[in-house]
Amino acid sequence: MALNTPQITPTKKITVRAIGEELPRGDYQRCPQCDMLFSLPEINSHQSAYCPRCQAKIRDGRDWSLTRLAAMAFTMLLLMPFAWGEPLLHIWLLGIRIDANVMQGIWQMTKQGDAITGSMVFFCVIGAPLILVTSIAYLWFGNRLGMNLRPVLLMLERLKEWVMLDIYLVGIGVASIKVQDYAHIQAGVGLFSFVALVILTTVTLSHLNVEELWERFYPQRPATRRDEKLRVCLGCHFTGYPDQRGRCPRCHIPLRLRRRHSLQKCWAALLASIVLLLPANLLPISIIYLNGGRQEDTILSGIMSLASSNIAVAGIVFIASILVPFTKVIVMFTLLLSIHFKCQQGLRTRILLLRMVTWIGRWSMLDLFVISLTMSLINRDQILAFTMGPAAFYFGAAVILTILAVEWLDSRLLWDAHESGNARFDD
């Protein structure tokens, strides 16, 4: 018995066209964080690309023209004298008006014999932002004059995390709450300039795509075929072959399989920071003279006294001054041990922890910024005066060393310790 099946006739004509040209192939790229070699397709503007294995951002879609970056830099340069030299806060102490600005706080630190601690604050609040705007201006002028731009481009990517104007702005709020127990506070004209400078700096850093600047100024022929001998440069993120001198053909720094002496430098910085954190938390970090009496505060006791007036601000200072430094030390110690013992479990967790400490590390400088600003506000000789204690130097040095330890660690070593050939990683 035959089955009668109805015929289905399409209502619209289906047209099949042959592909007349070869589909576009992607360029081969190595991930600078996990060293995976993959094919990167062509990316349009405002599109980002991520590593298929570790999800690290390979290409950032946010990109401004150099002219727009230069305009932002010149605007920031105009704001800087007002943000640093004009009063941020006014207080009335014992019937006398006192003005506080950024430069005055750094000068008070240096004047009291601790120039190293003052230079830490100076670099993060004044030096690094000033280098940022002058570097962008150098790129703008240098591109037109045919100057060598490689050193500036190499420095810009590392400079971003040292620009800490946003953290200093939080420190202004913390210092205001600490001082309000002794005097009446009012915002100064410099505060508005400083807030504007923070906003412009944040926007500029978020749109400063150094890798795209490398592509514009020093374009290189990408690798179009897969080759395990391809290496990625950690300076400019170019994937290719080393030249005859073993250097990256684009930025001219040595092109090595792994960062040289990464573990040794990381261990040295980490152990030194552990040693410095002990006096930083045991010795007094601030000293207040009130009517001839002397009151010393460690980091913890200062947080407890701050909690009596504002528990939320005390929580912020606790996280930045105690929780973050010790968390960074514990995480980095764990990561280094996992590399030495070739741990194969929990790779995803370790990668996330490394990215976390990379982002939060700079916030530990908050305590030094609060001390710097408070020193310029309260300084009335023996009637009422505020000065920093010996722990300030140890704390600042420990924070900087932990930042350097994270920067010096080559994250690809975590993958080397893991089993080879993993296309995915999980716990």
Rank of each mutant, 00 (worst) to 15 (best):
residue 240 G to T: 07
residue 233 C to T: 02
residue 75 T to Y: 02
residue 372 S to Y: 02
residue 2 A to H: 12
residue 313 V to L: 15
residue 202 T to A: 10
residue 89 L to G: 03
residue 57 K to H: 04
residue 53 R to Y: 11
residue 377 L to A: 12
residue 335 L to R: 01
residue 106 I to K: 01
residue 311 I to K: 09
residue 363 W to G: 09
residue 105 G to A: 05
residue 48 S to P: 04
residue 52 P to D: 07
residue 402 T to I: 06
residue 109 M to K: 02
residue 34 C to V: 00
residue 397 A to S: 13
residue 248 C to H: 00
residue 420 S to D: 13
residue 420 S to H: 09
residue 349 T to W: 13
residue 208 L to T: 07
residue 215 E to Y: 12
residue 91 I to W: 02
residue 335 L to S: 05
residue 241 Y to S: 10
residue 414 L to P: 03
residue 29 Q to P: 08
residue 199 I to E: 03
residue 394 Y to V: 01
residue 122 F to C: 13
residue 279 P to C: 14
residue 129 P to G: 04
residue 336 L to I: 10
residue 402 T to F: 09
residue 233 C to L: 00
residue 293 G to T: 06
residue 55 Q to M: 10
residue 316 I to Q: 02
residue 83 A to N: 03
residue 44 N to P: 03
residue 384 L to E: 00
residue 427 D to T: 15
residue 391 A to V: 02
residue 310 N to F: 12
residue 172 I to C: 09
residue 85 G to P: 05
residue 380 R to V: 05
residue 8 I to G: 13
residue 1 M to F: 00
residue 197 L to Q: 03
residue 190 G to T: 04
residue 72 M to A: 07
residue 246 G to V: 07
residue 131 I to P: 00
residue 122 F to G: 02
residue 60 D to K: 11
residue 177 I to Y: 07
residue 227 D to E: 11
residue 358 T to E: 12
residue 97 R to D: 02
residue 351 I to R: 14
residue 252 H to V: 02
residue 301 S to H: 07
residue 303 I to V: 10
residue 324 V to K: 02
residue 204 T to C: 09
residue 155 M to N: 15
residue 425 F to M: 12
residue 317 V to I: 14
residue 76 M to S: 03
residue 142 G to K: 01
residue 90 H to F: 05
residue 107 W to Q: 14
residue 128 A to Q: 02
residue 13 K to E: 10
residue 334 T to D: 06
residue 384 L to G: 01
residue 138 Y to K: 01
residue 207 H to W: 15
residue 420 S to V: 09
residue 136 I to K: 05
residue 54 C to H: 00
residue 26 G to M: 12
residue 14 I to R: 11
residue 96 I to H: 02
residue 374 T to G: 02
residue 145 L to K: 04
residue 55 Q to W: 13
residue 208 L to V: 14
residue 285 I to M: 10
residue 7 Q to G: 11
residue 148 N to T: 03
residue 232 V to A: 07
residue 236 C to K: 00
residue 288 I to K: 00
residue 55 Q to N: 09
residue 373 L to N: 03
residue 154 L to K: 01
residue 43 I to W: 13
residue 127 G to H: 01
residue 277 L to P: 02
residue 245 R to A: 05
residue 345 Q to R: 14
residue 364 S to Y: 00
residue 248 C to M: 00
residue 318 F to Y: 10
residue 59 R to L: 14
residue 11 T to G: 12
residue 136 I to L: 03
residue 176 S to I: 11
residue 269 A to H: 02
residue 1 M to K: 01
residue 108 Q to F: 14
residue 266 C to W: 01
residue 127 G to S: 07
residue 103 M to E: 06
residue 65 S to I: 03
residue 11 T to P: 14
residue 92 W to T: 05
residue 116 I to Q: 09
residue 226 R to Q: 07
residue 415 W to S: 09
residue 57 K to F: 05
residue 134 T to L: 12
